[in-house]
Design a protein around this nucleic acid. Structure first.
Length: 567
RNA sequence: UCGGGGAUCGUCUAAUAGGCAAGACAGCGGCCUUUGGAGCCGCCGAUCCAGGUUCGAGUCCUGGUCCCCGAGCCA
């Protein structure tokens, strides 16, 4: 790697660079990504993953650990652990042999707790949870000491051992740090270090009946792993004094620097594991990997590439003010990547039958079509043409509005890669008046799409040959919420769910080259958008396509303006 | 009310000793086009407020205002 003029470092990278310069950590850069295995990773986690693994990769010899923060057995599951590993790998990062678990440190953590008790810095408190809350005081009033605060070291040691040995019920005792009940920082008012939880842990089984709390386990896990920079989100800012307190009281040489940054928010969605879990549990989506979910598994199934997410995370930057990133920026990176890499293909979502009256009934031919105009190396393919075709219903208007350039009675347009066709008649359903078929003529001289006489058409539309096309299911996804901030004004996010976030179309027609398309493969349906083969519900006989994102649609914009100016 | 943070175009991020407020997205307009896609060109548009220091302040000082986080035996 070269060392180009670094554009401008975010405040965290600047701090890392400075620490390197002053040799604060003996030239080491060690970060970690510490998920709790209690849900699926979402794009907010991707920001943290890119930051932590990114900083490690940018610095000579830097490494980033993957560590599961599995200190609460009642919320955590092995299923989540697997999904997290899969998602981090998919994003393109590698923890090599550095897969760790807070639960691996339980023995060590217990020993440290004993040390704190011996130092008189921790005690067993036998107040009820409610009493502890009351003794804590409020934001503006100091708390008061627990009556158990003055227990002797011997008694504390004995009780703590009893907690570990299962002599006490859940909730009867906790181990607390002895700090300052009058601290203006509530986290320092004798925080709980250990609680009794007589439940099996998905990794340690029934070995432990007491489990360490986050602040205690996290700081020590970081220290044990020799982390140099412990990056977390803003809500932990108030916890930093406690993080430092634990390491200082234990006199540990390895004392990582906790640095906080703003978590990611994106418009028209929610990014919190709790809320996403509710969407799953309440059936508003089909699962954690529903293509409308902002989870990495959902985005992957939707058709996102890891590059899109990495580029997005790089561009949004890292800072401390809380922000809401426009979903349009994410979609910009999505279209940018998909445009350059997706093969083009013709697909008709809502078919309208077209008969080319002057094209011989028994004739068919193959036309050359470019696979990707952005990538000459992608080559070309043949698409079959015949007398009966399907075009998009919305590409025809019997009474075309201003600026509508597509097909209309008497109007000539180009069928992409095929011929100029002119609409000569419209067939309607006698009862409903609905347009059911178009009668057209074609100009044999315009084969391939250009006219020898130089006449122009204003529109090019896509089509498929009726007899050759494949019928497929297409799922049209749109944003999950109708409001930029689904919780605007304290509203329940469920109230702003978009009822049209999924529209399923079952009579779509695609060109035959899509036969055998592999699950997960991505295409641009010309003039429509980017689609990928659903990796869950597709079968070779019945493929399902997910719409990843639409193409930018300037006609839709014009039409919207027309409608608004009419009002 | 106490403690901890944060305020720069509509949105996000820059401005690295106090020295022309920059880029991206969005929007708008144009060019081009066998995708009303892509691409190209242009336009619009910001330093929370009030004082102060200075030749010069987004940056330093003083005083305000507004927003976020915090009272789990969650992380």
């Amino acid at each position: 790697m070269s060392d180009p003029p670094s554009p401008s470092l975010d405040f965290i990278r600047a701090k890392v660079a400075e620490d390197l310069k002053t040799n604060k950590h003996q030239g080491r850069v060690v970060t970690r990504f510490p998920p709790e295995p209690n849900g699926y990773l979402h794009i907010g986690h991707a920001k943290s993953i890119c930051l932590n693994f990114g900083i490690a990769a940018e610095n000579e010899g830097g490494v980033c650990n993957l560590r599961f923060d599995d200190t609460n057995p009642i919320k955590e599951e092995a299923e989540y652990e697997e999904s997290i590993k899969r998602d981090v790998r998919w994003l393109g990062f590698d923890w090599e042999d550095r897969l760790f678990y807070a639960s691996d440190y339980f023995d060590q953590l217990y020993q440290y707790a004993v040390q704190l008790i011996q130092k008189g810095k921790a005690y067993v408190c036998s107040l009820s949870a409610q009493d502890i809350r009351e003794y804590r005081g409020t934001l503006s009033e100091p708390g008061k000491d627990s009556p158990y605060r003055t227990r002797s070291v011997e008694e504390n040691l004995k009780l703590f051992e009893g907690m570990r040995a299962g002599e006490f019920e859940d909730g009867s005792h906790v181990l607390r740090a002895k700090i300052d009940m009058a601290s203006p920082n509530l986290n320092m008012r004798d925080p709980t270090l250990y609680r009794i939880r007589q439940v099996p842990h998905h990794r340690t089984g029934d070995k432990w009946l007491i489990y360490p709390m986050y602040d205690y386990a996290h700081s020590l896990s970081d220290s044990l792993e020799g982390i140099t920079h412990s990056l977390c989100t803003l809500e932990f800012e108030d916890h930093r004094p406690l993080y430092d307190w634990v390491l200082d009281e234990l006199n540990l040489d390895s004392h990582p620097q906790q640095i906080e940054f703003a978590r990611l928010n994106i418009s028209y969605t929610v990014l919190s594991k709790r809320k996403l879990l509710e969407l799953v549990k309440e059936g508003h989506v089909s699962g954690w990997d529903d293509p409308r979910m902002p989870t990495l598994s959902g985005l992957r199934r939707r058709g996102y590439t890891p590059e899109v997410i990495r580029n997005f995370c790089e561009q949004i930057g890292v800072a401390k003010r809380d922000t809401v990133i426009s979903v349009a920026l994410l979609e910009h990176h999505l279209r940018d990547d998909l445009n350059r890499h997706s093969p083009r293909v013709m697909a008709v979502l809502r078919p309208l039958r077209v008969v080319i009256e002057n094209y011989p009934e028994d004739q068919e031919e193959e036309l050359e079509a470019v696979n990707n105009p952005e990538d000459p190396a992608a080559g070309s393919r043949k698409v079959p043409f015949s007398r009966v075709l399907y075009i998009e219903q919305e590409d025809f208007r019997e009474d075309p509005p201003k600026k509508f350039y597509r097909l209309a009675p008497g109007r000539e347009v180009r069928l992409r890669y095929a011929y100029f066709v002119k609409c000569v008649d419209v067939v309607k359903d006698e009862k409903t008046g609905e347009v059911v078929e178009l009668r057209c003529t074609y100009d044999p001289a315009t084969k391939g799409g250009s006219s020898p006489d130089g006449r122009k058409v204003k529109a090019t539309i896509h089509w498929v040959s009726a007899a050759h096309s494949l019928q497929v299911e297409v799922r049209l996804y749109d944003r999950l919420f109708v409001k930029e901030n689904p919780e605007e004004g304290g509203a329940d996010f469920r109230d702003s769910l978009n009822p049209d976030s999924l529209v399923t179309l079952t009579s779509c027609r695609v060109e035959p080259s899509l036969k055998g398309a592999q699950p997960g493969s991505r295409y641009q349906f010309e003039r429509q958008g980017y689609f990928c083969v659903d990796s869950v519900d597709s079968t070779p006989e019945a493929p399902v396509f997910n719409r990843t994102v639409t193409l930018r649609d300037s006609w839709a914009k014009i039409e919207k303006q027309n409608q608004q100016s009419k009002k």
